[in-house]
């Protein structure tokens, strides 16, 4: 069952352009020139109930603009959006009871207040009963391990602590869909992992649908079954993460540690690194046979250790960007 349906969605921004310098400024007062920027250009996709979907793309691809249209913040220029049977731009209030949103770069908690106060205030805003709010706070505090943070003003929390409180706050009213816009931005590896585990847990325990934007490949690799890659406002790829890896991952990386010095000279094998007796090579499985190559590598000398791995998803995605000849920032007002 689809919980989000998007059809031919478009969003154009009118951007005032100005030539450099004072002359340009004066000119733009009397004769302003505008340029239409297509932030989101005719995209269509569906999200199934209970799914974790990654929405990825470089800066300025139109990710945030899409989320903002799905949550009712922005009105689309054209196209249809259906989220839980509601039209976000028209049924904003009704929809907000059913969705939770976290913008990694934007705090929704009151800066000077401890999270506990913010939670209670949000409970009032979402018209939840006091007993329900208490129950939810108890549950979320345990889930997010934020008990000791509850009474400390937000401004004194670290980014990782704050983002945990932000996500907890967005879940207070038990939403069906959670929109996370770059939830792991700026976090260190340990905290990132913690947040990922939490998201996984949420999806499992609360059966929430999760719509995630990120440009961190780790988020996608570990969390999502399906990824939509977007660039310049258009969908470049809409595939399961498994397929994504399979289709775009014909390269393998082999690390070998020999017991003696060897000289590798096999066609189709690229040496990435060679240090002492250890060598790191890359092979393209679409042009050569892995089996043969490995046999030849082992024949070269006594092997102490060998590892064969896939290149990280990060590389795959950056390959896709390059293959589709797409780069970063074109739409400046959105990231």
């Amino acid at each position: 069952m689809n919980i989000i349906n998007v059809k031919n969605l478009k969003k154009n921004f009118k951007v005032k352009t100005k030539k450099a310098g004072l002359k340009g400024s004066i000119q733009s007062i009397f004769n302003p020139t505008y340029r239409e920027v297509k932030a989101v250009n005719d995209i269509s996709f569906e999200v199934e109930k209970g799914e974790i979907l990654a929405f990825i793309g470089p800066n300025g691809a139109g990710k945030s603009t899409t989320i903002k249209m799905l949550t009712g913040i922005l009105h689309p220029t054209s196209g249809d959006i259906d989220v839980i049977g509601l039209i976000p731009a028209k049924n904003r209030k009704e929809l907000s009871y059913k969705i939770g949103t976290v913008f990694g770069q934007k705090s929704q908690l009151w800066f000077h207040l401890p999270p506990l106060d913010s939670f209670h205030l949000l409970g009032k805003i979402y018209e939840l009963s006091d007993s329900y709010v208490e129950k939810r706070i108890a549950y979320l505090t345990e889930l997010f391990e934020i008990k000791e943070l509850l009474e400390i003003p937000i401004r004194k929390l670290s980014l990782g602590q704050r983002i945990r409180c932000e996500i907890a706050a967005s879940l207070l009213h038990n939403p069906e869909i959670i929109f996370l816009d770059e939830p792991t931005i700026g976090l260190d590896v340990v905290v990132k992992q913690k947040i990922r585990d939490l998201i996984k847990k949420l999806n499992k325990e609360e059966k929430s649908t999760i719509f995630l934007t990120s440009h961190d490949a780790g988020d996608i690799e570990q969390l999502c079954k399906r990824a939509i890659i977007i660039n310049h406002g258009e969908i470049v790829l809409n595939e399961t993460v498994k397929n994504l890896k399979y289709n775009y991952m014909n390269k393998k990386v082999i690390d070998i540690k020999y017991n003696e010095a060897v000289n590798i000279n096999i066609p189709d094998v690229t040496i990435l690194k060679s240090k002492g007796y250890a060598v790191k090579v890359e092979i393209d499985s679409s042009v050569c046979d892995i089996d043969e190559i490995i046999t030849e590598l082992i024949k070269l000398g006594k092997v102490a250790d060998i590892t064969i791995s896939d290149p990280p998803l990060e590389e795959i995605i950056s390959n896709i960007y390059q293959q589709k000849s797409i780069g970063g920032d074109r739409v400046e007002e959105d990231s």
Binding site: F13, S64, K68, I73, L74, H75, Q105, K106, S107, Q108, L109, W110, F111, H112, I154, R155, E333, D334, S335
Partner: peptide, 14 residues
Amino acid sequence: LKKYESGNLIVNKL
């Protein structure tokens, strides 16, 4: 509000 275009500044709610 219909003309609102949002923004992406990193902000805190004060």
